[in-house]
Amino acid sequence: MTETPNPNIIDADTLTGEMRPIRRVVFGLGSNLGERFANLQGAVDALADTPNVWVTGVSPVYETDPVDCPDDAQPFLNAVVLADTTLSAHRLIDRALAIEDAFDRMRSKVKNAPRTLDVDLITVGDRRSDKPELRLPHPRAHERAFVLQPWADLEPDAEFPGLGPIADLLAKAGADGVTRRDDLELGFE
């Protein structure tokens, strides 16, 4: 017996004829204020609870020295989340900002000021954008060991769009100040 679609349910894709491709997304997470680990776990949970976002992997947690931050900045906890999604890059950045706001992220004019939570959109498939509100791939992630090392743990053969293997980028960036915290493990369902 075949199932007949319910004619009373409207599917936006069938109305517009648009296909929504599934894209691999890489999120970078960081926290250096408050309950750092709890903030990261909250971000993972919020991403996993996002409709049309399917978390496929969460990296080990790393404690990292602040990079390009004010002198009094405390160490960060960082991780990377891999997901598949049909959402647009603009919807994903809106979701990332909403998650940060839910964790009382205070925006500052001080560059790289301490924060309760940072949810960066690193890549969305091979999507590219150079708009001020959405820069893809993330413009500095390829230089940041605190992104590259956890990403390499999840996908050792991954490629950074337009720049090559993340393993090569990590070797160039170096891993000084990036320490794996095996005593902290983020979960996801």
Rank of each mutant, 00 (worst) to 15 (best):
R140S: 04
R144V: 07
Q149R: 14
W151Q: 02
A141Q: 04
R135I: 15
R144Y: 10
A141R: 06
H138S: 03
G125E: 05
P156F: 07
L136Y: 13
P132L: 08
R127V: 15
G125T: 04
W151Y: 08
R135W: 01
R144I: 09
D126T: 14
L134W: 12
R127D: 14
K131F: 03
P137W: 13
R128D: 00
D130S: 12
D126C: 01
D153W: 05
H142P: 00
F146W: 12
P156E: 05
L148P: 03
E133R: 04
V147S: 03
E133F: 06
A141K: 03
P132T: 01
A141W: 12
T123L: 10
T123W: 09
R127P: 00
D153N: 13
V124I: 08
R140I: 00
L136A: 09
R140A: 09
E155S: 10
H138K: 06
E143T: 13
K131W: 02
L148F: 14
V124N: 01
R144H: 08
R127E: 15
Q149H: 08
V124E: 02
T123A: 13
K131I: 02
D126G: 12
L148A: 07
P156D: 07
P156Y: 10
L136R: 11
L154M: 13
D153F: 04
G125F: 08
P150C: 08
G125A: 01
A152W: 09
E143K: 12
P137I: 13
R144K: 09
W151I: 05
P156Q: 06
V124S: 02
P132I: 04
P132G: 03
A145I: 10
E133V: 01
G125H: 03
D130Q: 13
D130F: 04
Q149K: 15
A141E: 06
R140T: 09
T123R: 04
A152Y: 14
A141T: 06
L148M: 09
I122C: 00
A152H: 15
V124F: 06
L136C: 08
V147D: 05
L148I: 07
E143Y: 12
S129M: 08
S129L: 04
I122K: 01
H142K: 01
R127L: 12
Q149N: 00
A145W: 12
F146E: 11
W151M: 01
L134M: 09
S129W: 12
E143S: 02
F146A: 06
